[in-house]
Design a protein around this nucleic acid. Sequence first.
RNA 1: GGGCGAUUAGCUCAGUUGGGAGAGCGUCCGGUUUACACCCGGGAGGUCGGCGGUUCGAGCCCGUCAUCGCCCACCA
Length: 885
Amino acid sequence: MLDKSWRPDEVEAKHYAQWEKNGDFAAGSSDNAESYCIVIPPPNVTGSLHMGHALNNTLQDILIRRKRMQGLNVLWQPGTDHAGIATQMVVERMLEEQGMHRRDLGREKFLKRVWEWKAESGGTITGQLRRLGASCDWARERFTMDEGLSRAVLKVFVALYRDGLIYKDKRLVNWDPKLHTAISDLEVVQHEVNGHLWHFKYPIEGVDKKYIIVATTRPETMLGDTAVAVNPDDPRYKDLIGKYAILPLVGRRLPIVGDEHADPEQGSGAVKITPGHDFNDFEVGRRHDLEVINIFDAEARLNDNVPEKYRGMDRFAAREQVVADLKAEGLIDKIENHVHMVPYGDRGGVPVEPWLTDQWFADAATLAKPAIEAVEQGRTRFVPENWSKTYYEWMRNIQPWCISRQLWWGHQIPAWYGPDGAVFVEETEDEARAAAKAHYGKDVELTRDPDVLDTWFSSALWPFSTLGWPDQTPELKRYYPTDVLVTGFDIIFFWVARMMMMGLHFMNAEPFHTVYIHALVRDAKGQKMSKSRGNVIDPLELVEKYGADALRFTLAALTMPGRDVRMDESRVEGYRNFGTKLWNAARFCEMNQCLPVAEFDPKSAREPLNRWVVGEVARCGAEVDRALEVYRFDEAANAIYAFTWNTFCDWYVELAKPLLSGKDKKVADETRAVAAWVMNRLLRLLHPFMPFITEELWELFGGAGVGRLINAPWPEFEEGLGDAAAEDEIGWVIGLVSGIRSARSEMNVPAAAKIPMVLIGASDENRKRLEDYRGLIAPMARLADVSTAEAGAKSPKGSIQLVHREATVALPVGDVIDIDQEKERLQKEIGRLDDEISKIEKKLGNEQFLAKAPQAVIDEQKDRRADRAARRDAVQAALAQLQAT
RNA sequence: GGGCGAUUAGCUCAGUUGGGAGAGCGUCCGGUUUACACCCGGGAGGUCGGCGGUUCGAGCCCGUCAUCGCCCACCA
């Protein structure tokens, strides 16, 4: 016997362990069955599960479990990412707590520490994914720095280098002065800052007391100025072009150049040019062949290229000093308050500095072309579709991708330098040595490039590197291209775009046919979850409290296209209750011996109630299929929820009670078989969403010798289950019971009062129905008796009539009803109906409507008019009778 | 500046070939009846952001304004 309520904690671990032990998650290895593959977005190896992961992996698991049940050759490829900067920072912070710096340890020992940390914490997140129920093929788990995946990285790097698609260049990059590394454009985030706009006066050379005014938000960079630009068409400054200004504090001569970059509308119209520390100025410098002066060191402290007094100062201290010094010299025109955007490193949390360094770049523009075409041609499809626009926008304007990082944790760049700086890019040191020997004609000392690759470089290879590439494995052949990638919009650029580029370049085929983009998970108020806001909801706490099934179902039900998921604990609670509801329905079935009957054919059911519910579950199944095919997780979840609670529990189970306890054993047996059959189908439909509770209940409803639910076939419903007649009859019963309940409540009939009912003036069909279903209706509507009377018959003295469709129901209530109150209620009802009727009349009186509306719509309106008119008359009659009493 | 999205019940949100305003939660009333109080039954509550247009008919289509959110770019 099942317990009274569902205890997730007791069974979840048990079932997961069994699934894993039985190899239920293992990829199918048959080449015959159709294959279905999802590669997991690899979480950071040292991370822990947050709500975004929970959503992302729940959706994948739903897709995967369903396809597995459908008998496809399924692989859900799991793994983790080494997460270069993030992981290195964590270990650095741990060292810091011991008063150490990574440089104290040296590269080798530091890396050893990182690997130790990985060994220590690397299992956390995969353990948490298991807790969630994720049915990944764990035996195939990969890590981006595994031997195999590292080999793929080297091969890709060398190949792209040889194709000229990777190159080394000296240009301005975003430099993170805290982490001491270059970062890509994508890793820069703009923060709004309340700052100032300083207007400086630069003296014009050879003209006493004449100045050109330039404005800046970054005074300290003036120490690196090498020109002043004005717009060539600006009449104010035209004459100054070709002349020189003198840089205060430094004394350098600055050519005044004419350049379109200077906007006459902005500031003073003249702009200081610092080619070494500003992307726009760098371009201006190129156009005018200006000197590029680097004034910062790696920590953004001023270096020896500035006057002595500023050397070694932090950039912000230097800013104050420069302003003070200029002020002292009377060279500040004015200072305005100014709100502007300042670029920050997304990891380091300090403003990044445009800095001139040697870096490796990938020619993203070239790689992007086929990736754009793949989406244009529909070989890869975004769901929801509008994300393709975002993708195009970025891909068509893509900049060179800076792929080198001045870190230690990651894939070290396979480039070796000879004594004269000649570079040898090879997959191994031996090959580099050989290449160097061929180049120099003798063995020389080589030094390896110390930089590592951007983490996203290896992630870009994930869909094929995890399947074994560069080896031609059976898995690679069977599962690439993969089917769907499930991810959040925040990494379309970082990851999706790059996988497209690399996949198309190296595999000659798009890495996935569908990219399903889901939203962000926010808190109940719609705020982004963040540690600083303190509104982070830990998915594992919710799992602890309500069970993994409840969290999963919540995430699925809240996943609507184009809208963020607002995680409200009350919803999780509600879906936990849903699990309990299902549990109790199962318990009811168990108590009534509603257990699977072998070879039972639902079409053989004779009772309309049974025929009806069979049709309803088939309809629910069709809806789940339809919704999941178009990634409408919410609609699928809601269909199951509504069927389970409203259809099955609220009506079927209740209406079945009299049948189960009735004298007709055949009917009771049929009902038992149908109830069990429905539970069986329901559990299968629900399994992808709520794998644990359904697996637990499968022991009861799976039937003899069918094994575990995870391996059960996805339900397919043949045509013609249920029928229109049964639907009609049960619909009528439900409508009648609802009507009576509503009237009882409005008439304040005590709930416990069992009263007789007379159905007056019903059609022959409905009189028959009432006869047929009185046994079902009476207990549901708490009636003592049910009978019918001819049309126009008076209801028994002291009774109340209520109107149901074409019929009038008289409820004799003795003295429990307040007659005046009831009169009032009927008056109101008449008023409502009159309003509705006049609305319809107006419509039907409109010639244009009659001329132009489709016939079906017109007929519908006529039916409504007839229905409402009949009800109005009936209520009117009831009122008249009431007044006569 | 460019793009995307939102605005419907107290709250969170559904609502597609344009034709009777919905769900969950909350609230109020009433209830232990073959499972379930993590339950059952019933009710109240909405000028569908404003204005204009198309249409016989608009929550839905078009225009416009307002407010809010996100992404990209720029901001001397």
